[in-house]
């Protein structure tokens, strides 16, 4: 069976004036279902760029990116939204929830984008919010939630996208340790239960133990890999 993510010799080079900056260099990855992978590294090491490429937001300069066996690195800009819609979901450090919409509506919006309509969408949004422990807060606006609760809404929204790959950028960055850990445990459980492939870019060493695999990046390269002992 095809793996969720396979990259070969993936590179991203930015042109800054006359200078070429290599953000990601020769990244070879094979990520499986149900796996929770951490991308660790200092700021500027290329982990966010790699995450953007894996999420089809940025296009690689060279190399191959396959999602479930489908080569996507050479696809046109017009085709990428369909790929993202089918395979990718995101969680961001800043939550990026619509402040004008309730928690329930924020999740519903993604369901509607997926083509889920009416009562089915409403029921599904409620189920997802219950799953992340926010059943009491579904009619709240984001401003009335704590950081941890907002990130759980973002997790529910990512699940609403029903994509097999979840990419998270510093999901604990704006949370205290306790809330950050809760969110990560939630992601880990979801990955296991729903066979999702979760990739998290972070430099929060306190959550290292959550990951099945950790990739350390420096200067755009994956310099080391650590697997959790069984």
């Amino acid at each position: 069976m095809d793996k969720p993510i396979v990259t070969r010799n993936l590179c991203k080079i930015y042109q800054e004036g006359r200078v070429e900056v290599t953000a990601v260099s020769s990244a070879d990855l094979t990520l499986g279902e149900g796996e929770v992978v951490g991308l660790f590294g200092p700021s500027g090491s290329g982990k966010t760029t790699l995450l953007s490429i894996l999420g089809c937001i940025l296009r690689p300069t060279s190399g191959s990116l396959m999602l479930y066996g489908k080569e996507v690195s050479d696809m046109s800009e017009a085709d990428l939204p369909f790929i993202r819609k089918k395979y990718i979901s995101f969680i961001f450090q800043g939550f990026n929830l619509f402040p004008a919409l309730t928690v329930h509506e924020n999740v519903m919006l993604v369901l509607k984008l997926k083509g889920v309509k009416g009562e089915v969408a409403e029921r599904r949004a409620t189920e997802l919010l219950t799953e992340v422990g926010l059943e009491e807060r579904i009619d709240f606006l984001p401003r009335d939630l704590s950081g941890g609760q907002k990130q759980r809404v973002a997790v529910a929204r990512a699940l609403a996208a029903d994509a097999p790959v979840i990419l998270a950028d510093e999901p604990t960055g704006n949370l205290d340790f306790s809330n950050g850990r809760k969110v990560m445990e939630l992601l880990k459980n979801l990955a296991a239960e729903r066979k999702r492939c979760v990739v998290v870019a972070t430099h929060d060493n306190r959550i290292e133990d959550i990951f099945d695999r950790i990739l350390f990046m420096e200067d755009g390269k994956i310099v080391r890999e650590k697997r959790r002992s069984p």
Partner: peptide, 18 residues
């Protein structure tokens, strides 16, 4: 003001048209 939210929708697969 909502550029990040719109960007997130795009990241989640919403087309520009949506």
């Amino acid at each position: 003001e909502h550029i990040k939210e719109f960007g997130t929708l795009k990241a989640l697969g919403a087309s520009n048209f949506e």
